[in-house]
Write a protein that binds this DNA or RNA. Structure first.
Lengths: 246, 246
DNA sequence: CCCCATCTGTGCGCATATCGAACAAAATTA
DNA sequence: TAATTTTGTTCGATATGCGCACAGATGGGG
């Protein structure tokens, strides 16, 4: 069903940098014929997913329904949000839950205590998996061959001077993460930011998601993170063990 | 481009109550032929938007990208999030920004201080416009004829005993909201919850979004809301006046 | 246990919607 | 103003999706 696939690719070309696009811009962005793109956009407009002023197209909030439909797919956010709120309150720092989607982690729930990252994180936000604490924990649960292939087919930009960018080094770190059951990130994703993550596993032992705490580097040394926060994270981890699907 | 429209309708059939659906279930839910639904779902699976275990389909986090693409459409979240954080911190209560989509409001940014509603609100969450403070403010900015048509073509369920459900009464309230520049909701959307909202208007005077504060009813009388929080909300309102598009 | 009733998933021919080259209109440059 | 590039739209050949009809699964009742 080509038309559907095309239309979805069209929707994904709209980004923060390109919120208003002409037919030709979209055509260039997704490498489809202008006529094809035109049909897609006109359909989207007719169905209420886009606005058209005769020159430029814009997505409407209706598109958010699609994302919501997906979030609704997983009971995860509803289950973990209360625990996340309690956890954040108890430790006085921000915590989040995310899942793996390819080479990215996707935030599905979050309890923000203080703004700690320069960008606003919210459900649906994405960050690269290879350099985040939750990403490390989620990757560590996958077969090594799969992760190696992933790391070698994905650009691994150094987001800070501390970011690990060598696939071998990352794989070694993943092995340690797997062995110890948690991951610590020390300013690899953003300077001034440290975080600690544990996997959330189902009763059957499958890693479903990851839970983390993030805080300003000024608040604590990297070496002290596990000692301070691991018990609280593991308590949530244990309570969720029976509740998670799969 | 029929296939695209069909596919989007298929995605929207997935809800919290029906996260895993067979072909026939989806077919029944959106009134399309089973064969058509099947093609849609197989395409979605092939493109990575759905998973298929041979019997049931599930949406994948990839679908969230679509919603994110839409949020990216509006600079609004990025602009307001920092102000929202500061506002929440200053007044010690939760605040949110939402926009109007048909008869619903859609949250685009939120700073939660305390859990105040029984359901978790997050960007993308939807609530009916007619009984929420932000909805009232957004509806009050639309032409009365349009709002009347909307109210008469939409079910107006009483979410609590206090919910206004008579279109005439709501229109009268909207007129008052428009005149005074803010809306107060006293347990109309959920028992134990009160809120205060102001419109966010662009430099050209167009109402783009709404900003609100929500708190437990036990914390303050309805009559005292405006006196306590209006100055803070209006300060944000004023600072955003020049920054909003449109 | 078997049969019938019902529901679900899937191949196939026909009709229709989609593709993309070719055309027209507009914007840009000289 | 005319040449040139870029963008939007049209239209016929053709591939694509539509939905009927069939097969397989399911499950209740005799």
């Amino acid at each position: 069903m080509g038309g559907l696939a095309k239309g979805l690719r069209v929707i994904e070309t709209f980004t923060a940098e390109r919120p208003r696009q002409s037919i030709s811009e979209v055509s260039a962005a997704c490498g489809m014929d202008r006529a094809t793109v035109r049909r897609c956009l006109l359909t989207l407009a007719q169905e209420g997913y886009a606005d058209y002023d005769g020159k430029f197209f814009t997505l409407t909030p209706r598109v958010l329904r699609l994302g919501t439909a997906c979030l609704a797919t997983m009971p995860l956010p509803q289950i973990v949000q209360p625990m996340l709120d309690a956890l954040s309150e108890a430790i006085g720092e921000s915590s989040s839950v995310s899942i793996l989607d390819g080479d990215e982690i996707v935030y599905v729930a979050r309890a923000a205590q203080r703004r700690v990252m320069s960008i606003a994180l919210m459900p649906g936000s994405r960050l690269p998996a290879f350099c985040t604490s939750m990403g490390r924990v989620l990757l560590a649960a996958r077969p090594e061959a799969e992760v190696r292939a992933l790391l070698e087919s994905t650009p691994l930009p150094a987001r800070t001077p501390k970011t690990l960018t060598d696939p071998g080094a990352i794989l070694a770190e993943l092995a340690r993460v797997k062995a110890q059951g948690y991951a610590v990130i020390d300013e690899e994703v953003e300077l001034g930011l440290r975080s600690l993550a544990v996997p959330l596993v189902s009763a059957r032992g499958r890693t479903i998601a990851a839970l983390n705490v993030g805080l300003a580097a000024s608040r604590m040394e990297a070496g002290a993170l596990a000692g301070h926060f691991l018990p609280a994270l593991q308590e949530v981890q244990a309570r969720l063990k029976g509740l998670l699907p799969g």
